[in-house]
Design a protein around this nucleic acid. Structure first.
Length: 813
RNA sequence: GCCGAAGUGGCGGAACCGGUAGACGCGCACGACUCAAAAUCGUGUUCCUGUAUGGGAGUGAGGGUUCGAUUCCCUCCUUCGGCACCA
C-alpha cells in the first residue's frame, strides 16, 4: 500500500518553463536534416498571424499534432517538426486601412507574440528551420515559382470579373460582401471586369484525380473529386435558324435531345452581345443581364434559391435531330461552364421552371412505362429515369442505357462530339491588394509583358502610405515601385501592380521548411528526397478543395519540371475537428475568441492540451467550455503523487496484467489518433495504481506512455526516476527512450465473464476460463438460476456460443 | 441548391468485426478527515417500478434484416461544415 506521504504537489508552470528552456538550450528538437535514418516529416498547417493571436482552436490542433510527432520520435524516427507563419493576407491590410499601422509592423508584432505562445505550448518545433511567407527571402521564391509557371505556359492573363463597391471604389473579397452589399458602406456590390492572372490548374485536372498511394480521408478525396468535377458528355451543335453559325451545347444528358424545346446561354457568353446588337431585344437583355451579374453563382444555380431569370435574344436555333425551330434565351442558371450554352427541356427542374415562367412550350420523352405523356398538366420536371418515347429509333429503351448509344449516334451523324468537361476552373492568383507577394512581371511599351529575370528577384514589396485598393492594386499608386526599365529592350516600362493570392505562398511552403537555410535556391531536389513527401499533414478540413488542391497542383508541376522527385506533397492527411464557442465558429467579430494563455498560466500546457484531447476524438472537434479541466488537473496530480511516491519491490500479477494491457491500449489509441481514450486508459490505470502501488519499472513505463501527451510532466518524472539532473552528462530525454512493448502473455485475462442471453435478452453472467469450451460454457449457463426461470416450460431451439463473449439461447413455446 | 459530416445520461464522451449500452471525466448526492472551509479520500449516480433478488423501457423519429442492432439496410427529421478574393 501507498503510505500517506506528504509529497508536494506538481508545480506545472515552474517545471514547464524549466524544460522548455532546457530543450531549447540542448537543441533537442533541432534535428540534423542530413541524418537520413528513419526520417519523419510531421507537419501542421501553419497559422496566419492574426491580431487574435493563437486561440484554443490552434491548441486543439497543434497539441495532438505535436503529441503525434513525439510518439513517432519515441518509435525511433528522426522527426522533423517545423513551424512558421502564413503571413500575407487581407486582415493585416484591413487593419492597416483602419489604423494606419503598416501590415509589416502589425504582422511582425503578431508573429512575435505567437512565437511566445507556441513556445509555451512546449512542442518539439525546430525553430532553426522556420518560414515567414511575408519575408523577402521567402516571397523571392514564391515569385520564382510564378516564373516557373510562366515559363511553362501555366500562367496567363485574362479579363475576369471582381466584386466592385461603387461606394468605396474598391475591389472586395467575397467575405466583404454580405447579401450583395458592401460590409463597410452597405452599398450594392457589382461585378467589374479586370485583367487578372490565372494559373492553369485545369491542365492538371486529370492528374489531380489520381490519389494513388495517398493515405487521405475518403471524404476529402471525394470533395476534391467533386470539386474537379470530371463529367463525360457531348457537345451538340444546334445550327442557327436564319443565319450562318452554330450554338454548341454541352450536355451530360444526350438522351433528352428529342425533348429539347429551347436553348439558354450564360449572359457572359461573347455571342450574346453580337446577337442583340441593334435589335429591339437589346435593352431588355442588357437589363436582365446586369441583374444576373449581381447574383452569386450559388443564387443563380440553386433550385430552391432565387427565381429563374432570363430574356429572349430574338434568335432561333434548329434542334439537329428533329429540325424543330427553338428559341434562344439568356438565363441566370446558365454559367460559363462547358460551352456556356445549354440545351433545355422538360426533364430538368431548372429548365422546366424557366419554361413555365417565360411560357416556352415543353415536351416529355421519358416516362415510367414508355407511354407518351404531356407536360401540359405537370407542375414539375420529370427527372426520374424511365423508358423513352417520341425519340425515333430509341423509343422503348431505358434512357440510361440509351444514353451512350445516343452519344455515338450524334457523333456518327456529325451533330455532336463526345467531350469531357471539368467543373474545376483555372486558379485566379492575382489580387488587387497590397499585402502580398508582387507578381514578377514587367509591362513594356515595346515588348509587352516581360517576366522579371530570376536574378532580379525578389521584386520587393515597397512601403506605401495608402493601402486601399481602388480598382487598381494599391501598388499602382507608388511611382517609385511602378517605374522600371524593360529587361529586354532597356526601355521605359512599368511593373505589374497586382500581388499574389496567399494560397500561392502556402502552396509550396512544405518544400521550404527542410531547405529554409538555403540562400541560393528555394529547395534542393537531393536534400528533399529524405524529407518528401510530408509523412503526416494535419490541418482543417476547410482546406480540402483549395490549399490542398493547389499544393498538389504546384507539387505536380515541379515534379514534371524535374525540380523535385516526388509526385504528391502529403502522404498522410488528417483533419482535426473544429472547436466552437456556444455552438458558433470563433471569430473576432462575434467576440467569442477564447485565448489559451490564462489556462496555460494556471494549469500548465500539459493539462491544457490533455484537456483539449480529452474533450473527444481529435477529428471531431467540439464546443469549448472549461468545466472539466479540473478533472485533468486532478489526474496530473494523482499521476505525480503515484510516480514520486514509494516504489514496491514487485507488483502483483494483476497489476502486471494491467500494465501490459495499458501499454497495448495506449499504443493502439495513439496510433489511431484516439488521444481521448488513450488518456481514459491512463486514468483507469492510475485509479488502480494509486491503490495498489507500482514498482520502478512500471513507473517508467507509464511515464513513457504519457510522455507524448504530457511532455513536461514526463520529462520531469523521467529525470527523477533515473536520479539524473539535466546537467548530468548521462542525462537523456524521455523522448529518446524507446517506446515500451507489451507482452501478449500478460495482457490476456485468465477468467472472463460470459453473458447469458435468452431470446436476445441478458439474463445473467457466468465466470469462466477465457478458453472455456462450448460444452462447459453451456453447462455453466444452464446452471444459472435466473436463466432457468426463463427456460422453464420452453423449448430451446438453438444454442449460440461466441467464445469470450456470450452464450445465447433461443426458446419457443 | 450542390457536396460532406454528425445525432447516445444533467454535460463532454466510450462501446473491437452485430454480442452486458453509458468506460473515462465533469457535475450532483451522501459519507470520512476538519472548529470550519479548501484540498484529498470513499460510496452512489440513464429512466420507470420494487425493501431487495428481480422486471420493464432506452442510443434523433419510423420501419426492416437478425437469436441479438448505437453498429447493417430503407424512409424521414434536426444540427453543423465547405462552395473558388478569409486563411
Amino acid at each position: 500500500m501507498n503510505s500517506k506521504s506528504d509529497s508536494t504537489p506538481y508545480n506545472a508552470p515552474k517545471h514547464e518553463k524549466k524544460w522548455q528552456k532546457l530543450w531549447e538550450d540542448k537543441k533537442l528538437y533541432d534535428i540534423n536534416l542530413k541524418n537520413k535514418k528513419k526520417p519523419y516529416y510531421n507537419l501542421v498547417m501553419f497559422p496566419y498571424p492574426s491580431g487574435d493571436k493563437l486561440h484554443i482552436g490552434h491548441w486543439y490542433n497543434f497539441g495532438p499534432a505535436d503529441s503525434w510527432g513525439r510518439f513517432m520520435r519515441m518509435q525511433g524516427h528522426n522527426v522533423f517538426e517545423p513551424m512558421g507563419f502564413d503571413a500575407f493576407g487581407l486582415p493585416a491590410e484591413n487593419y492597416a486601412i483602419k489604423t494606419g499601422i503598416p501590415p509589416a509592423a502589425s504582422t511582425a508584432k503578431n508573429v512575435e507574440y505567437m512565437v511566445k505562445q507556441l513556445k509555451a505550448l512546449g512542442a518539439m518545433y525546430d525553430w532553426s528551420q522556420t518560414v515567414n511567407t511575408s519575408a523577402p527571402e521567402y516571397y523571392k521564391w514564391t515569385q520564382w515559382l510564378f516564373l516557373q509557371m510562366y515559363k511553362r505556359g501555366l500562367a496567363y492573363k485574362k479579363k475576369s470579373p471582381v466584386n466592385w463597391c461603387p461606394g468605396c471604389k474598391t475591389v472586395l473579397a467575397n467575405e466583404q460582401v454580405h447579401e450583395g452589399v458592401c460590409e463597410r458602406c452597405k452599398r450594392e456590390v457589382s461585378k467589374k471586369d479586370l485583367a487578372q492572372w490565372f494559373w492553369k490548374i485545369t491542365d492538371y485536372a486529370d492528374k489531380l484525380l489520381d490519389y494513388e498511394g495517398l493515405d487521405w480521408p475518403e471524404k476529402t478525396i471525394t470533395m476534391q473529386k467533386n470539386w474537379i468535377g470530371r463529367s463525360e458528355g457531348v457537345n451538340i451543335d444546334f445550327p442557327l435558324a436564319d443565319e450562318e453559325g452554330v450554338l454548341t451545347c454541352y450536355t451530360t444528358r444526350p438522351d433528352t435531345i428529342y425533348s429539347v424545346t429551347f436553348i439558354v446561354m450564360a449572359p457572359e457568353h461573347p455571342l450574346v452581345k453580337k446577337f442583340i446588337k441593334g435589335t429591339k431585344y437589346a435593352e431588355n437583355v442588357k437589363e436582365v443581364a446586369s441583374k444576373i451579374r449581381k447574383q452569386t453563382d450559388i443564387e443563380r444555380t440553386s433550385e430552391g434559391g432565387k427565381d429563374k431569370l432570363g430574356a429572349f435574344l430574338g434568335k432561333y436555333a434548329i434542334n439537329p435531330v428533329n429540325g424543330e425551330k427553338i428559341p434562344v434565351y439568356i438565363a441566370n442558371f446558365a454559367l460559363m461552364y462547358g460551352t456556356g450554352v445549354v440545351m433545355a427541356d422538360a426533364h430538368d427542374q431548372r429548365d422546366f421552371e424557366f419554361a413555365r415562367k417565360y411560357k416556352i412550350p415543353l415536351k416529355f420523352v421519358i416516362s415510367e412505362d414508355g407511354k407518351p405523356h404531356d407536360p401540359k398538366d405537370a407542375n414539375e420536371a420529370h427527372v426520374a429515369d424511365g423508358i423513352l418515347f417520341d425519340s425515333e429509333k430509341f423509343n422503348g429503351m431505358n434512357n440510361r442505357k440509351a444514353l451512350p448509344k445516343m452519344a455515338d449516334f450524334l457523333e456518327k451523324k456529325g451533330m455532336g462530339k463526345k467531350t469531357v468537361n471539368f467543373r474545376l476552373r483555372d486558379w485566379l492568383i492575382s489580387r488587387q491588394r497590397y499585402w502580398g507577394a508582387p507578381i514578377p512581371v514587367i509591362n513594356c511599351e515595346k515588348c509587352g509583358e516581360v517576366p522579371v529575370p530570376e536574378k532580379d528577384l525578389p521584386v520587393v514589396l515597397p512601403r506605401i502610405k495608402d493601402y486601399k485598393p481602388k480598382g487598381k492594386a494599391p501598388l499602382a499608386t507608388s511611382a517609385a515601385f511602378m517605374k522600371t526599365t524593360c529587361p529586354k529592350c532597356k526601355g521605359r516600362a512599368t511593373r505589374e501592380p497586382d500581388t499574389m493570392d496567399t494560397f500561392v505562398c502556402s502552396s509550396w511552403y512544405f518544400l521550404r521548411y527542410p531547405c529554409a537555410h538555403l540562400k541560393s535556391k528555394p529547395f534542393d531536389k537531393e536534400a528533399l528526397k529524405a524529407w518528401s513527401p510530408v509523412d503526416m499533414y494535419i490541418g482543417g478540413p476547410e482546406h480540402a478543395c483549395m490549399h490542398l488542391l493547389y499544393a498538389r497542383f504546384v507539387n505536380k508541376v515541379l515534379f514534371d519540371a524535374d525540380l523535385i522527385a516526388h509526385k504528391e506533397p502529403f502522404k498522410r492527411l488528417i483533419h482535426q475537428g473544429m472547436v466552437t464557442k456556444d455552438g458558433a465558429k470563433m471569430s473576432k467579430s462575434k467576440g467569442n475568441v477564447v485565448s489559451p494563455d490564462s489556462f496555460v498560466e494556471k494549469y500548465g500546457s500539459d493539462v491544457f492540451r490533455m484537456y483539449l484531447m480529452f474533450m473527444g476524438p481529435f477529428t471531431q472537434g467540439g464546443d469549448w467550455n472549461d468545466k472539466g479541466i479540473t478533472g485533468v488537473a486532478r489526474f496530473v496530480q494523482k499521476f505525480w503523487k503515484v510516480v514520486t511516491g514509494p516504489s514496491l519491490s514487485r507488483i502483483s500479477p494483476d497489476t502486471r496484467g494491467l500494465v501490459h494491457r495499458t501499454i497495448k491500449k495506449v499504443t493502439g489509441d495513439i496510433e489511431a489518433m484516439q488521444f481521448n481514450t488513450a488518456l481514459a486508459a491512463l486514468m483507469e490505470f492510475m485509479n488502480a495504481a494509486s491503490k495498489e502501488g507500482l514498482d520502478e519499472k512500471s513507473k517508467k513505463i507509464v511515464v513513457q506512455l504519457i510522455a507524448p501527451m504530457a511532455p513536461h510532466l514526463a520529462e520531469q518524472l523521467w529525470s527523477e526516476l533515473n536520479g539524473l539532473k539535466p546537467s548530468a552528462r548521462t542525462w537523456t530525454s524521455v523522448f529518446d527512450a524507446k517506446w515500451p512493448k507489451f507482452n501478449e502473455k500478460f495482457t490476456a485475462q485468465e477468467t472472463i465473464q460470459l453473458v447469458v442471453q435468452v431470446n436476445g435478452k441478458v439474463r445473467g453472467t457466468v465466470e469462466a476460463a477465457s478458453d472455456v469450451s462450448k460444452e462447459d460454457a453451456l453447462k455453466l449457463a444452464y446452471m444459472q438460476e435466473n436463466v432457468q426461470r426463463f427456460l422453464e416450460d420452453k423449448k430451446v431451439v438453438k444454442e449460440i456460443f461466441v467464445p469470450g463473449k456470450l452464450v445465447s439461447f433461443v426458446v419457443k413455446g
